[in-house]
Lab assay of single mutants.
Amino acid sequence: TFEVERIVRKKIVHGNTSYLVKWKNYSSKDNTWETEDDIRTKYGDLVDDFEK
């Protein structure tokens, strides 16, 4: 199971928000862009903290 360590960046393309996710126990080269809906479902607190 993958676990988010932190959110690195945010991008908005054509009105759709995605977050660059750093995965726990993986290197930064393994970071992936994930949709806001996918990340918010399980890691809403991390998204809220990133947006502060």
Score class of each variant (00 low, 15 high):
1 T>R: 13
1 T>S: 11
1 T>P: 14
2 F>E: 11
2 F>N: 13
2 F>Q: 14
2 F>C: 14
2 F>S: 11
3 E>A: 06
3 E>T: 07
3 E>N: 05
3 E>I: 12
3 E>S: 05
3 E>R: 04
4 V>N: 00
4 V>D: 00
4 V>G: 03
4 V>Q: 03
5 E>P: 04
6 R>W: 09
6 R>N: 07
6 R>V: 12
6 R>Q: 14
6 R>C: 14
6 R>S: 11
6 R>A: 13
7 I>S: 00
7 I>G: 00
7 I>K: 01
7 I>T: 03
7 I>L: 07
8 V>Y: 02
8 V>F: 04
8 V>L: 14
8 V>G: 00
9 R>C: 15
9 R>T: 09
9 R>K: 13
9 R>D: 15
9 R>Y: 09
10 K>P: 00
10 K>W: 04
10 K>Q: 03
10 K>F: 06
11 K>C: 14
11 K>V: 07
11 K>W: 04
11 K>Y: 06
11 K>N: 04
11 K>D: 04
11 K>A: 09
11 K>G: 05
12 I>G: 05
12 I>H: 04
12 I>E: 07
12 I>K: 07
13 V>Y: 11
13 V>L: 10
13 V>E: 12
13 V>P: 00
13 V>G: 03
13 V>I: 10
13 V>K: 08
13 V>F: 10
14 H>P: 02
14 H>I: 04
14 H>F: 11
14 H>S: 11
15 G>T: 03
16 N>I: 15
16 N>P: 01
17 T>S: 06
17 T>N: 05
17 T>D: 00
17 T>R: 04
18 S>G: 02
18 S>Y: 15
18 S>C: 15
18 S>R: 11
19 Y>D: 00
19 Y>R: 00
19 Y>C: 01
20 L>C: 11
20 L>K: 02
20 L>W: 08
20 L>D: 02
21 V>E: 01
21 V>I: 13
21 V>F: 00
21 V>Y: 01
21 V>P: 01
22 K>H: 06
22 K>G: 03
22 K>P: 00
22 K>N: 02
22 K>M: 05
22 K>R: 05
22 K>L: 05
22 K>V: 08
23 W>T: 01
23 W>I: 01
23 W>K: 02
23 W>C: 02
23 W>F: 04
23 W>P: 00
24 K>R: 10
24 K>W: 07
24 K>L: 08
24 K>D: 03
24 K>N: 04
24 K>I: 05
24 K>H: 06
25 N>T: 08
25 N>F: 09
25 N>R: 06
25 N>C: 07
25 N>W: 09
25 N>K: 06
26 Y>V: 14
26 Y>D: 09
26 Y>H: 15
26 Y>G: 12
26 Y>E: 07
27 S>H: 10
27 S>R: 06
27 S>P: 15
27 S>D: 13
27 S>F: 05
27 S>N: 08
27 S>L: 10
28 S>W: 14
28 S>V: 09
28 S>P: 09
28 S>T: 12
28 S>L: 07
29 K>D: 12
29 K>V: 10
29 K>R: 10
29 K>S: 11
30 D>L: 13
30 D>G: 10
30 D>V: 09
30 D>C: 15
31 N>G: 05
31 N>R: 05
31 N>L: 13
31 N>E: 06
31 N>Y: 15
31 N>P: 07
32 T>W: 00
32 T>G: 02
32 T>C: 04
32 T>N: 02
32 T>S: 11
33 W>C: 05
33 W>H: 01
33 W>S: 02
33 W>Q: 01
34 E>H: 10
34 E>I: 15
34 E>F: 15
35 T>C: 09
35 T>P: 12
35 T>S: 13
35 T>D: 12
35 T>H: 10
35 T>R: 15
36 E>M: 05
36 E>C: 04
36 E>L: 08
36 E>P: 01
36 E>H: 06
37 D>R: 09
37 D>M: 13
37 D>L: 12
37 D>K: 11
37 D>I: 10
37 D>T: 10
38 D>V: 12
38 D>I: 10
38 D>H: 12
38 D>S: 11
38 D>R: 11
39 I>T: 02
39 I>P: 02
39 I>E: 00
40 R>E: 03
40 R>C: 06
40 R>D: 01
40 R>S: 05
40 R>W: 04
40 R>P: 02
40 R>F: 04
40 R>A: 06
41 T>K: 14
41 T>R: 13
41 T>H: 11
41 T>Y: 11
41 T>I: 13
41 T>L: 14
41 T>V: 14
41 T>D: 12
41 T>A: 13
41 T>Q: 14
42 K>W: 09
42 K>Q: 10
42 K>I: 10
43 Y>K: 02
43 Y>L: 04
43 Y>W: 15
44 G>M: 10
44 G>S: 14
44 G>L: 09
44 G>C: 05
44 G>T: 09
44 G>P: 15
45 D>T: 11
45 D>Q: 12
45 D>L: 09
45 D>Y: 12
45 D>F: 14
46 L>E: 03
46 L>M: 13
46 L>N: 02
46 L>W: 08
47 V>R: 04
47 V>W: 08
47 V>N: 02
47 V>S: 02
47 V>T: 03
47 V>F: 06
48 D>S: 09
48 D>E: 11
49 D>K: 09
49 D>A: 14
49 D>W: 10
50 F>D: 00
50 F>L: 01
50 F>S: 02
50 F>E: 02
51 E>G: 03
51 E>W: 04
51 E>A: 04
51 E>F: 05
51 E>K: 05
52 K>T: 10
